[in-house]
Write a protein that binds this DNA or RNA. Sequence first.
DNA 1: CTGAAAGCGCTTACAG
DNA 2: CTGAAAGCGCTTACAG
Lengths: 348, 348
Amino acid sequence: MKRTSLKDIAKLLGVSPTLVSMVINHLGDEKGINSETQKKVWDLVKKLNYKPNYAARSLRLGNSKIIGLIIADISNIFYSVIAKSIEDNASENGYSVIFMSSEENPKKEEEMIKVLIDRGVDGLILSTCFSDRDQIRKLRDSNIPFVLIDRYVPGVKASYVLAENYQGAFDMTRHLLSLGYTKIALLHVTPSHLTTMKHRILGYQHALRKNGHPVKNKLIKEIPYDNIRKNMETALKDLILTEKVQSIFFLNNKLTIAGLETLKRLNIRVPQDVSIVSFDDIELFRFSYPTITSVSQPKEEIGKLAFEILLNQINDRNADKQQVTLPVKLNIRESCGSSMLNLFRVED
Amino acid sequence: MKRTSLKDIAKLLGVSPTLVSMVINHLGDEKGINSETQKKVWDLVKKLNYKPNYAARSLRLGNSKIIGLIIADISNIFYSVIAKSIEDNASENGYSVIFMSSEENPKKEEEMIKVLIDRGVDGLILSTCFSDRDQIRKLRDSNIPFVLIDRYVPGVKASYVLAENYQGAFDMTRHLLSLGYTKIALLHVTPSHLTTMKHRILGYQHALRKNGHPVKNKLIKEIPYDNIRKNMETALKDLILTEKVQSIFFLNNKLTIAGLETLKRLNIRVPQDVSIVSFDDIELFRFSYPTITSVSQPKEEIGKLAFEILLNQINDRNADKQQVTLPVKLNIRESCGSSMLNLFRVED
DNA sequence: CTGAAAGCGCTTACAG
DNA sequence: CTGAAAGCGCTTACAG
């Protein structure tokens, strides 16, 4: 059974496809089409449940009402919450979302951008892992509207929505210092050029220096994204057994989870033997033992704003690039050892 | 700058668009096209970075190489892991995935199906919340290939990929009985027609009966999906304080998390005051205090198989409907009180 | 071995 | 107030 087309409607009504098209696109009044005729068209459209063919419209108009979303991994709650928020907002505005997971692999990301552009998406939201300015410039020069989320590429003018990575890490480090810890280690993840990581590391370093503590590079460890588990044990043993650190600051939720797991396996108690804190708050941290002090990011807001900015750019190709940095929040829990009295309390 | 088209290539080479099209679609040899000519085409295609216009091809061919994915909520790890798996497999086969979150709302789901079909997706994977057979029949009659995941609609012949819900709940209940608990409550979520819930409830009931224990309806509570938190406290107070149950079986991960939160707030200790277990294992359950005994489902496998079956149906409209039920696994942890010695152990 | 022509289902500039 | 015609970029049946 063939889908009904514009032509079918026109033929049945004895009018031209032109007229039907105009009515359906709500140009009836503007084009001065008889309101009775308009009504007839609408009635038949409803009756036959006519829906315009997107492919045809897309071919003709040169847009697709689809946007592409490239993130590192949709199964990471950080991204899936953002994805949900983007999709909700996109839906409300008549857009659909194609998503892809780049696994922090620039080659993959490049390929995905190609596929999405070939598909004719109207815009792109991406949590890019590009380090090379040329890669993002190529994207910019392709003339497709796009908005970066979570990270950006320094030196390339582009719209983005980020969290206050520097401030969050600064505040968290200061909090640890205020608890009396001075030997504070930092674990971050590759690719090491990610601005999220860079800014969080800076926040940590500045908080130490501003409070009169030296930054020791030995206490800053880098863990490869695709091999977190294997490298965690070596890193933690070195930091805790050799360097005798008092605190460890994990720079994202994956690291923290792997860290928790490893610490348990090594029978190292948190916070008695070592206190830990995390960047990026997830539900698990409110239920784990101990609960994890962390910096939470406004994920829904990131998604919502990213879509709004993108939409704006789709509708106005000359719109100014917008850069937004959203505030983060410190959640003090048990893992930093601030107050053992709270051991069984849960915040609402 | 206009994208290069087939015609551009043809003109530059002094051949017809027909020829270029055939070469590009790898029909060169079949159509007996001079291999030198073929090479010339490919060279220019590479040089100009020509990519066929999806919209045009889609309009002409009547397919889109896009599939739709409708789940309850992409930000629930259960679905996001499945989504990741589907997208990975789809990508490998040249398909892209549009996702939408129905929030267990049949109206929304119906609307989303419409939008996706209007968009011309080639197939659909859905975790349907339809109770009405007519709704799913309408989908079937629309003639678009689709595969159900997680749940199905009884009485409608359709392809699906499920987990062994009955068996998982049966085994888990038997495990609780084997630990000496006999007053075992069950918490499930609306919509109550979901086959997942129904089968898990059945598994629980049969396990009780087979072991000589009565099924008490007072111990089976239903919590509305969109208002889990508010209803949890009433339900738990009733079960624990009034009914004095020894165990609670939560039928999905959302319920378990809300349950854990509420129990903490009420200062009810797990497993000392009440033991709990969950259907659907998530990472949080390995880190929570206590760790949560649960039934885990093969999420990646569900996604992978669902896509394979869908692809098969897209390629052969008359392919037989396939129904797959995948085995689940019991993860015994601390929350059921089986062995307090394991309190700080983590499985690998 | 290769090409001219039709057509997928729309929208829009133009004409009346 | 309404319609005929062109064209978006492909593919395919047909012709030679």
